[in-house]
Design a protein around this nucleic acid. Sequence first.
RNA 1: GGCCCUAUCGUCUAUCGGUUAGGACACAAGCUUUUCAAGCUUGGAAGCGGGGUUCGACUCCCCGUAGGGUCACCA
Length: 452
Amino acid sequence: MKPIVRIAPSPTGNLHVGTARTALFNFLFAKKHGGTFIVRIEDTDRERSTKEYEENIKESFNWLGLSYNEGGYHRQSERSDIYKKYIEKMIENGSAFVSKEEPKNEGERAEVIRFKNPNKKIIFEDIVRGTVSFDTTELGDFVIARSPEEPLYHLAVVIDDHEMNITHVIRGEDHISNTPRQILIQEGIGAKKPLYAHIPMILAPDRSKLSKRHGAVSVIEYKEKGYLPEALINYLALLGWNPGTEKEIFTTEELVEEFSLEKIQKGGAIFDEEKLKWINSEHKKKLSTDSLNKDMKTAIREVIGDNLNKMEIARIMNLLEISGGQYSTISQQKELIEKEGWKDYMLDNSKPRYSKELLYWKEEKDLESIIRHLEKARDILSEIDEKKFSNENVKQSIWDYSGEVGRGFVLWPLRVAFSGKEKSPDPFVLASLLGKKETLDRIDSAIKILNS
RNA sequence: GGCCCUAUCGUCUAUCGGUUAGGACACAAGCUUUUCAAGCUUGGAAGCGGGGUUCGACUCCCCGUAGGGUCACCA
């Protein structure tokens, strides 16, 4: 039998990474066995549900590539006729009854529908946890609907799972104690029983429930930070599940191939963005240079500005690539561009600013010798043809001289002359990016500073 | 508090009675022909405690302890 599974998010907030992970496990399980994956929007709480959040949920699933099957998108708010039928039937057969109430809070009804609890022991098999048993006596005759048109969560879930022929309920561990009362309702309406798999929670670094105060918790935030959807999918899959091999980088197709409910973990797992970053960089390494370049350009424009010319962008892209930033997320790239301060010395009109002392290499104190080294470097570089002013040629030409007198004594002041910074890519790269004229100009400026 | 679930390096995890307890992220050190980053190499790092069962327990059972979940006219 082909499995039919569902993810049932409630549109009361942006799609949470925990819900996304539950959706992913459902999706992988369905795809693996040629089954059906359904999205069911649980919006029976009209007060808290909004259209915007529903849109966010759709957008997030879409971005992650978790697509539901044809006709597999439902809203509980549009199914009240179905619920009404069941509620009436339950009242009729005595598994539920209308109950007079004393409203405690505003909005509460004076008359609600309660489930007639048979007060029995419920035992069910959970695919990840084994046998779980509850005594439902303490649940009492719990409320299942405000009115025949307004079912509450537990009732709506059971009716929908039954109507949609759900075979496996794969959901978060926080629902495990909801299961017995849902089984009770199933018995009340004569529904077939799905199999259960309660997956562990995603935790914050302090092992508490992952919430907004811990930083980014919604899928959309990770999208905005520039993570690749397949990287987030890959990471989420590894939180609470593993294939039993040492392979860690997966495409979604590979996950479908490997996935099995039996390998799901029991304990909760802390969400570690550092590992997500690493997985993201591994996925980026498989990307075409075209899309890598597109991301880099976006990051550069966002940090330095929109009015950059082609040459300037190319120069900074080059630096970003050399600094290993091409495999980072856009937000990490932006951080890097900011931190490295390339806009201070890599734009057409920028002149690096630095103190005279910065030009001194380590213990070197002899002003004359630094000037001598810079002048010599200048002479050597001016020999190179302007059109052949490449990284390799610059390096080659200056290599022997710097070797004779000590590399640092020549290379350090050159690098400072070009960048004005303590940290930067090497002087050969900078010189080739700057071009011959600008390179020589900057050496002259450095000499001038030393002479002043 | 009642009920339920869980428990291996800082983190994610492998181990389904016999292993020098393995891998990855992170971290540290060294190397990489100037700084930073990257890269490479190396290293430190774990079975919550106590009882059983067994020739032998991380692994099975019990009791503690700790963490989490849940106890709505929310989902």
